[in-house]
Amino acid sequence: MDLAYIIAGLAVGFIVGLTGVGGGSLMTPVLLWFGINPATAVGTDLLYAAFTKCGGVIVHQRAGNIDWKVNGWLTAGSVPAALLTVLALHVWHPDVTTLNALIKHALGIALLLTALAIVFKTRLLALTRGKQATSSDSKPSLPLKTVMVGVLLGVLVTLTSIGAGAIGTIALFLLFPLIPTARLVGTEIAHAVPLTLIAGLGHAGLGHVDWLLLANLLCGSLPGIWVGSHLTGRVPDGALRPVLALMLALVGLKLVW
């Protein structure tokens, strides 16, 4: 079974590198398909995301594609929200059946939101970039709005491991239409690392991380991401994203209902 996990990590890593779609929205459903219980799937995937995105932070920082001020606003909301969510799970300490049911429903909703974000990303981006506006940084309400987005992502990511990629990036597109796309993507990747690491360690404290499974996934995903990133642009984005969105929507509907 170890080989199957390595192949799964390779496939997901390749797709993430090729399309930019967040690993959580793909890896967690794959782990559920393998029969991993929802709590362990989420906890393991959170640490998987933290390790794999570290490399992305290095690349984007070298390219100057991280806005550390925006990243700070997001982190100010997401990290405390993640800590409080983990604390609530520790204090509540629900039985396995109840926790898995909670995570399944939250995961289903997150997958549906991610599918919508993938489908409407281009339209939303065109809409926001087409607005006549002064510099986004001059709006006094932006820091508060960004912190609130961070809070929502902190809760969602901690419960489901999904949201930091597609949903978080779309939120940044809407809030900061004048910032280049590459810079927004790099900022969200940098924000995802501490968020997924803290949430993942919190789940590890609850016993929701399979360390051997994590190692197998990383063995496959790291070369997969490298290969996929070098093929970016050669496969039509318009062909891949609808297929991914449909797959995530079907899984999400199944989990919710």
Rank of each mutant, 00 (worst) to 15 (best):
Leu240Pro: 12
Asp95Met: 04
Thr169Cys: 04
Leu32Ile: 10
Leu127Lys: 13
Phe176Gln: 03
Lys53Tyr: 00
Lys104Asn: 14
Ala4Phe: 08
Ser135His: 15
Pro143Ala: 11
Ser161Ile: 09
Ile162Met: 04
Tyr48Ala: 04
Ser161Asn: 08
Leu87Ile: 08
Phe51Asp: 01
Arg62Gln: 13
Gly56Asp: 05
Gln132Tyr: 10
Thr122Tyr: 11
Gly23Ser: 14
Val147Gln: 03
Leu74Tyr: 05
Leu212Ser: 13
Gly77Gln: 07
Ser161Met: 10
Ser229His: 06
Ala245Asp: 03
Lys53Asp: 00
Leu253Ile: 07
Thr40Ala: 00
Val16Pro: 08
Pro194Cys: 12
Val42Tyr: 00
Leu99Met: 15
Gln61Arg: 12
Ala8Gly: 09
Leu32Met: 02
Gly9Tyr: 05
Arg183Thr: 11
Thr97Gly: 12
Thr146Val: 09
Ala115Lys: 13
Lys145Pro: 00
Gly168Val: 02
Leu112Lys: 15
Ala50Phe: 08
Leu248Trp: 01
Leu47Val: 15
Val57Ala: 02
Leu250Ile: 10
Ala39Glu: 01
Ser136Arg: 04
Lys121Cys: 09
Lys121Tyr: 14
Leu246Asn: 05
Ile15Met: 13
Leu31Gly: 00
Gly22Ile: 02
Leu218Ala: 06
Thr146Gln: 01
Gln61Lys: 13
Arg62Glu: 03
Gly9Arg: 02
Ile118Gly: 12
Pro140Glu: 02
Val256Pro: 02
Leu113Ile: 14
Lys53Glu: 01
Val21Lys: 04
Pro242Leu: 07
Leu231Glu: 07
Val16Tyr: 04
Leu212Lys: 11
Val235Asn: 11
Gly224Phe: 08
